[in-house]
Design a protein around this nucleic acid. Sequence first.
DNA 1: AATGAATGAGCGTTCATTCAT
DNA 2: GATGAATGAACGCTCATTCAT
Lengths: 214, 214, 214, 214
Amino acid sequence: MNEYSFIKSKRRFVISTKAKTGEKYHRILEAAVSVFAKQGFYQTTISQIAREAGVADGTIYLYFKNKDDILVQFFTYKAKQVFAGFRKEVDKAGNAIDKLRNLVHRHLEEFQKDRNMAVVYQSLTHQHLDIVEDNIREMSKMYLDIVADIVERGQEEGAMRRDLYLGLVKRFILGSVESAINTWLYSKRKYDLVSMTDPLIDLFVRGIGNYEQQ
Amino acid sequence: MNEYSFIKSKRRFVISTKAKTGEKYHRILEAAVSVFAKQGFYQTTISQIAREAGVADGTIYLYFKNKDDILVQFFTYKAKQVFAGFRKEVDKAGNAIDKLRNLVHRHLEEFQKDRNMAVVYQSLTHQHLDIVEDNIREMSKMYLDIVADIVERGQEEGAMRRDLYLGLVKRFILGSVESAINTWLYSKRKYDLVSMTDPLIDLFVRGIGNYEQQ
Amino acid sequence: MNEYSFIKSKRRFVISTKAKTGEKYHRILEAAVSVFAKQGFYQTTISQIAREAGVADGTIYLYFKNKDDILVQFFTYKAKQVFAGFRKEVDKAGNAIDKLRNLVHRHLEEFQKDRNMAVVYQSLTHQHLDIVEDNIREMSKMYLDIVADIVERGQEEGAMRRDLYLGLVKRFILGSVESAINTWLYSKRKYDLVSMTDPLIDLFVRGIGNYEQQ
Amino acid sequence: MNEYSFIKSKRRFVISTKAKTGEKYHRILEAAVSVFAKQGFYQTTISQIAREAGVADGTIYLYFKNKDDILVQFFTYKAKQVFAGFRKEVDKAGNAIDKLRNLVHRHLEEFQKDRNMAVVYQSLTHQHLDIVEDNIREMSKMYLDIVADIVERGQEEGAMRRDLYLGLVKRFILGSVESAINTWLYSKRKYDLVSMTDPLIDLFVRGIGNYEQQ
DNA sequence: AATGAATGAGCGTTCATTCAT
DNA sequence: GATGAATGAACGCTCATTCAT
């Protein structure tokens, strides 16, 4: 359902799809993400978001049910869209290793492209707020499923070991990529995050053990 | 310095080492961590902590400067102590791979032993709160330095590849372990986290690539 | 500068001149002064002021930075304005004695007109609160300077003794007037305070000694 | 009645005369006055008084019913005793003018001798707290009665004008002396307050008018 | 008598949310 | 739709007072 309706004490609000595609809706959402990135969700006030968006406090409630809803919308309309692009990117490659490389590459690329989104996403996925738990779980599952598909295919191709605990491997890969993103987000010198793709893939595939020389 | 003193407008508090070793200090700290784990720092009220600890609201201020200080103490006295034990565990092993195994083993063991601590630690290390940023940075560095030492030693031993980007490897290992911990923390079925040690080490060392069979 | 701005942790307030001339600003200020007069500054709660003003507690913070600021505004915008009128009144008279009479007359008149202001002013000028010390010092100096000018002129006119310790005389006159005001404020029967003008001037000028009859 | 008893929830306290003459009672009272002088009654905490007195917080409640009672005791036992000495001093002089001089001299002397007492007395007599209103009224009356007696005697002696409004004259004299005291209390340079006696008497008796030269 | 840890009522202040304009 | 002044519930924190030791 692309419609979002609810009852409040006296009125019936219907925040329509049309509203969501409006210019102000996006301005407020971007403003919110920008302030959340700087200060965190709970330290951010509606007034700050309004000021950053250049609208009045009350205007925000024409586009969002409440403060929590801004976060929900962030995951529902912004982050989810980014994650939806991952599957397509993976499909472009012909073998498992390349698919994994494409996934990681796109992941790093998108997060580098929108730093505010990256900060908020990384921060909130570790806070386990009831508000957005479902959204995050869904997106996380989407990602892990992609990885699982890739690894299974890699095993069929003979490019990946068959004695892997798939549940662990999925998290291992996601955790490593997120760790690389976090390092980049909070490092002083702003290097190119996307260039981490190959070194990461190399670690995933070959590990740190020295087998070649034996 | 093992003493923690500060000025309040009208009073000079010295929350002594003695107070910190007192029964109530620990009772409040455990209660706080327990509630933080359930609700997060900002959604937790002093009253909730007091109720959980079985003391009056005001009593908390006999042991902690303010709400923020509870978090600071958590990192300064509780989490840091856990991390301090890691180095000792690493020293017990004779070679790099075993050292890495000991580190991961102890890490998983400690976090499994104290679930509340684990939740709060994992949550807060990703929130970048000014309050505890220094503490977290210090503990993180402590951990990453241990890993770096292990990897360098592993390279000298010939057990680990020499063509590794050390900065990335450190984060890669920490990120993977933390990812495994998070998975465990929020999975429905409570399996044994410590048993993840060997599979993780195996992934680190051998990677997911299928080289042996070629 | 007629603007009053300050920083709050998250917001920048500018309580503008416009806000100060607004109806609610004055309503709250009057309510506050009224409650301060009855109970004193420290025994007065924000809730009491809000109730007296017929607004919500939070509304007060739209017009005043904090509780202290209400007091500061009282001195800066209310009391100071009263004192500023004194100089004009003094200028209307042609000789020193009449100037003194005009000063005392206006003083008693203003304080009789606004009893709450009088109580708060008389009470706070003797408490030496850091918050308003500067304001009070300034107003007091304004008053004492007027008296000093009058006395010096009186000496030139030959109407006042030349062997006077000016520093003492200024305080002597101010102290006497304030004493008369206090007596009136707390006497059971409400007589006309302004009618005390001539008896006071008579005491200042002729003293209590019986020289004429000698 | 020199006994002071009351009921509290569970116990009957009797703070006896003996306790009042004890060393600790005075130490606490002096400490309290010292802190009140620096910070004012409402900004002073029991802890501060206890620390200044070198006793535990709870000890204060062995000698005083509550915080308010410290103020009551200050007026009942300390200030009143000072004022009681005034009458004796006045009696030593043979004529009205000298009696007035003795009164003012002793007043300035006592207040100069104990600056903390002076600050607290001057501050609290203008605050009209319910707690001590009766005490202050009584002391004030004692003082004003002395002045009234002196002036009446002066009129009989022919040394003072007969056309005086006695009620005003009393306040005029008290107000002037208190004004001189306040000036001294808050002036930067610490001159000799007692030396103000003769100039003050001169102002009272002869006024500021220039009659001699006419 | 003396202590000081513990209490909890009470206050100042913030800020998400509403609604008259 | 847009505004922003107004609201009041909720929170962190203080401190006078108690009471077990």
